[in-house]
Design a protein around this nucleic acid. Structure first.
Lengths: 208, 208
DNA sequence: GTCTATATTGTGATAGAC
DNA sequence: GTCTATCACAATATAGAC
């Protein structure tokens, strides 16, 4: 484990994460990043040369983290229901700490479409790994034969959207922060039930 | 019906929608809006005074449209399964034409949290209308007694997230535009099945 | 109402001392 | 490596002619 104090470069990167995640590329200010890191603006340029480079570093870090966590859960020895439960439990707690992360990644894809391609080549990530795992488990454990791709997207939708749309939900329904916390706690148990119910419903039709 | 040619003010607003929707508040440039409208930059300020005002007008327009459409479907005489199918069919076609709209609204809530409050007061919109309708139908048509709020969020999640995350999905899975079109077509029929299956699954447990 | 020209401020980036 | 000072330009906004 690394117990040393964070280097200047690390402090700048941490500050950049905070600012880019919440404000996006266009909204971020190099000045604010410098302030957040407790250094001068010029020093930010010294380490990362320009805004574009710094953003790239932040985006890659964010994507790596999310992928690593998803893989950690979905590529494991757990049963399918356990995976869904674990995945949701992880997302509630992880995203409540990093509620800006998924929206940051989504927005970055619109602002800088090409950037993900480079990253995908660099890191060890094949979407097939995830899909194959789901396909086999849905078939062997639940005895269903349905497209795992839609199942996968459905699971992600039900996990991520409620977090991403939090300010919208909270405003429209006039929920307090405490009510929102309870809402997300409820989803931890309710969402797996919803998903597994849906999958069981296919049993009648998929006997082909 | 209004057959007259669009006024200058209308042309500017249309241009502003296009630019704000795709680039967000920070990314938008008054110059680009002026170009898009075919007028001079100064004229944009003449009609809307500043960027903030123009953005407000665009955001309000977007929110009104989305709410109007959701109400049109959910507050109707259709049965619950019909509502879900209609809603999804509408969203596939509507969002494929305006794929930037939901993300624009979500982002605006982070950038300008207070703005929605004003709008909600102005327009005729009560979230209870939507929830009450769902609650009654789930109970009377499907004979279930579950929280309509989570059902409502689940439906929205399954509709909106796949559209919002399109660039991410397309890049990760290396899908062509044609494959993405087919993906969304599939969802039009698959998502209602998924949702209704999930709801039926509650029948066993909710006999209290 | 619509334009050109300009004011004014903000912001990414660099030069150069220490 | 870290700072201060400054450049260069981009972007919002306004003044004033027509």
């Amino acid at each position: 484990m690394d117990n040393s104090l964070p280097s200047t470069e690390e402090r700048i990167l941490e500050a950049a994460k905070k600012v880019f995640h919440t404000r996006g590329f266009e909204g971020a200010r190099m000045q604010e990043i410098a302030n957040e890191a407790g250094v001068n603006k010029a020093l930010v340029h010294y380490y990362f040369r320009n805004k574009e480079n710094l953003f790239k570093a932040v985006f890659e870090d964010a994507f790596r983290r999310v992928v690593a966590k998803v893989k950690e859960i979905f590529v494991s020895d757990l049963t399918f229901p356990e995976k869904i439960e674990t995945f949701l439990k992880y997302y509630i707690s992880y995203l409540s700490q990093n509620s800006y992360l998924p929206l940051f990644i989504i927005n970055s894809m619109y602002e800088k479409p090409g950037q993900l391609k480079e990253i995908l080549d660099k890191i060890d990530f094949s979407p097939e790994t995830l899909l194959v795992g789901i396909r086999e488990q849905v078939r062997d454990e639940l005895h269903l034969d349905i497209d795992p791709f839609h199942v996968y997207i459905n699971i992600l939708s039900l996990c991520i959207f409620p977090v991403v749309a939090r300010p919208l939900i909270q405003t429209i329904f006039s929920y307090s922060n405490e009510q929102m916390t309870r809402f997300y706690e409820e989803r931890t148990t309710e969402t797996p039930v919803f998903i597994l119910n849906a999958l069981k419903g296919y049993e009648n039709n998929s006997a082909k």
